[in-house]
Design a protein around this nucleic acid. Structure first.
Length: 423
RNA sequence: GGAGAGGUACCGAAGAGGUCGUACCGGGCCCGACUCGAAAUCGGGUUACCGCCUAAUCCGCGGUACGUGGGUUCGAAUCCCACCCUCUCCGCCA
């Protein structure tokens, strides 16, 4: 959520920056509705002031035994005016909020301007793509042949876009989770948290998933519970409504959670394999920082995520999403994309964003600055990493001619010392 | 699921229709005094949000907020209704 007073005072700048995202936003309407709101609130406050004065006077007169029925009638009249005016104010507020809540974050000035994913900018690459002297298989064939992936039977349990890992496949998923958590807690200084896997609508509003993206979520019928689409939701909301001290910033958390996404509108995309699932595991990094220095924190967060790929020896690149491809709440996003031999291309495995104060404003998360004044802090997060996609990237990148998989050295201690996956 | 208790400032906790939400009292925190220094003691200070004003996130003025939303009333933390949450006991349960 943007600060409406900032929008009002910097209307041209805001328009210009939002235009780079594409889409239309009712900024002029926002300002005019806000003006209307200010006027109505001012009138309401003036009426309240009069009522407060009159009521106090009545109290004093009554104590002296004076008849006050005339004054009471006046105040009653004022009260009914206030009541009807407040209904107006509320209606205006609802209009104001529906506009404001639908406006995405302003892209940071360092974000490349572009219409869609084709204009994202690659900023670095690491490693090299493996070379095969045979035709590499994709992870579905590899996993199925090894007996560690059973996509057909997952359908019986739940349906399409769910998966079942077996034996050493399940072990490797669990090993990856533990490996990632260990690296981030022991070497990168994040505190591990294990959060609820459901969140209420207030929390989802805080991170920007609601109200605009309800169709992407699984809701538990008859409740206000939603399955979390990412640990970003549960971890960011740890401090919903709180004020932190400057000295305790930045706060860094890492959380493993399953993630649940309805994937509405993705029909036909990535239907084969583990790329796009209704449920997947993810290790998420979340930071709460002071506004000063939050972009340095984005750089280091991204490096922390990259470190996992480097330790696993997986070829990847980092791209800066252009203005037209960024998510709703983000001011700047780096995607990390891992090399997939079967597709002969890079695929997203992590997305690292600085939301600046956009989420903090929605979730009311503040800190006390140098002068003791309360101020919205900045939130950041990134996958560190998407576990399912890491799992399939290992299968594809480390496959051997005989269909076995070499386990990356860094992962072996987490897999009972195994060096490979074989039939 | 059943029964009960409770949600008031940073924390504990009082207030039970108007003269104190600059909210009894206690603690914390900040400043000062005492001290070589500290502890103890003593004195002073310390809610948030919104609007108006403004160069200003200072000051000043006004408004709102006692879990949330309604209602009663000239006036609600206080009375009424609904809902949410927390705690205790019982039942069930990994």
């Amino acid at each position: 959520m943007l600060d409406k007073n900032f929008v009002r005072e910097n209307l041209d700048l805001v328009k210009e920056r939002l235009a780079t995202r594409g889409g239309r936003y009712s900024l002029d309407e926002l300002v005019s509705v806000d003006t209307e709101w200010k006027k109505a609130v001012l009138r309401s406050e003036e009426l309240r002031r009069r009522r407060n004065e009159a009521s106090e006077a009545i109290g004093k007169l009554k104590r002296n035994g004076v008849d006050t029925s005339e004054q009471q009638a006046t105040v009653k009249q004022i009260s009914s005016e206030i009541k009807s005016l407040d209904e107006t104010v509320q209606a205006i507020e609802e209009r104001l909020n529906s506009i404001l809540h639908g406006i995405p974050n302003l892209p940071d000035s360092s974000v490349p301007v572009g219409a869609d994913e084709n204009e994202n900018q690659e900023i670095r690459r690491w490693g090299t793509a493996p070379e095969f002297d045979f035709d590499p298989s994709d992870h579905v064939d590899l996993g199925t042949n090894l007996g560690i992936l059973d996509t057909d039977r997952a359908v019986k349990i739940a349906g399409a876009r769910f998966s079942l890992l077996r034996g050493e496949g399940a072990l490797m998923e669990r090993a990856l989770i533990n490996f990632m958590l260990d690296v981030h807690t022991l070497d990168h200084g994040y505190q591990e948290v294990l959060t609820p896997f459901v969140a209420n609508s207030t929390s989802l509003f805080g991170t920007g998933n609601l109200p605009k993206f309800a169709q992407d979520l699984f809701k538990i019928e008859g409740t206000d519970y939603y399955l979390i689409p990412t640990a970003e939701v549960s971890v960011t909301n740890i401090y919903q409504g709180d004020t932190l001290d400057l000295e305790e910033l930045p706060k860094k958390f890492v959380a493993y959670t399953p993630c649940f996404r309805s994937e509405a509108g993705s029909y036909g995309k990535d239907v084969r394999g583990l790329i796009r699932q209704h449920q997947f595991n993810k290790v998420e990094l979340v930071k709460f920082t002071a506004p000063t220095g939050s972009y340095e924190e984005l750089e280091s967060l991204t490096r922390d995520a990259e470190d996992i790929l480097q330790r696993l020896g997986l070829h990847y690149r980092v791209i800066t999403l252009c203005t037209g491809d960024m998510g709703f709440s983000s001011a700047k996003t780096y995607d990390i994309e891992v090399w997939l031999p079967s597709q002969n291309r890079f695929r997203e495995i992590s997305s690292c964003s600085n939301f600046e104060a956009f989420q903090a404003r929605r979730a009311n998360i503040r800190f006390k600055n140098e002068t003791g004044k309360r101020q919205y802090l900045h939130t950041l997060n990134g996958s560190g990493l998407a576990v399912g996609r890491t799992w399939l990237a290992i299968l594809e990148n480390y496959q051997q001619k005989d269909g076995s998989i070499v386990i990356p050295e860094a992962l072996r201690p987490y897999m009972g010392g195994r060096k490979s996956l074989k039939k």
